[in-house]
Amino acid sequence: MESKYQYLTFIGLRFNVANCLSILLTALLVFVFTFFLSRKLTMKPGKGQNVLEYLIDFTNGIVKSIMPGEEGKPFYFYIFVLFTFILFANVIGLFFQVKINGYTFTKSPTADPMVTMPLAMVTLLMSHYFSVQKFGLKGYLHNYVSPVSFLLPVNLIEEFTNFLTLSLRLYGNIYAGEVLIGLLVMVANSMGIVSVVVAAPMTMIWQGFSVFIGAIQAYVFSILSCVYFSRKLEREE
């Protein structure tokens, strides 16, 4: 079941071709999805517009559940794109598994920590940025020593654990799903027709469950992003 990947090296950086292709494909799908649903916008929404508006209302609802009121406004758009992107990225690996000469070319990009980490980093950097914007650099730094100064190390460690939990939770869930699908495929291939009959329904069930997990993880990632934003935007006195 060991997946083999092709690597490209460019100005000293290693690129996993499978990851890059999947990221590109995911981004393309998200763009095409939102682009074609947002054509022919009217006051009375058509089918496509309704779907998109429902999705926007849903992601806005995620932000509003954590930050009701004005302070959540700047995050509506980011959470919308983040949620849609992670959802598509989680699900894409369940349907597209392209292998050529033993090398994997598409998979879930979120099944790699090197992809989930920058996503978590964008969220956390944004939370720091908005905190500095709101309180100024002094107020932002003061939040690390509040409510009492000896909590400074805990607060600092918390920043790193936030980053790690946010990224590794997503990676672990999706990666485990992919591993299990890979195992089921191996089972199906092991003993001819008999094992196919046994493995096919299990694969179907697990794929369905993986869609569910993918949606849940996208939701969790979005809602935790909002939690980190809101925590950075309130002063602990």
């Binding site: 290693r14 890059c20 981004a27 939102t34 649903l37």
Partner: peptide, 22 residues
């Protein structure tokens, strides 16, 4: 490289979706 690639693609996606859909 993947991380860098993701950042670039994600930021591009943000810009495009904001302009064309959001």
């Amino acid at each position: 490289g993947d991380s860098l690639f993701l950042l670039v693609v994600f930021i591009l996606l943000l810009l495009l979706v904001k302009h064309f859909a959001w």
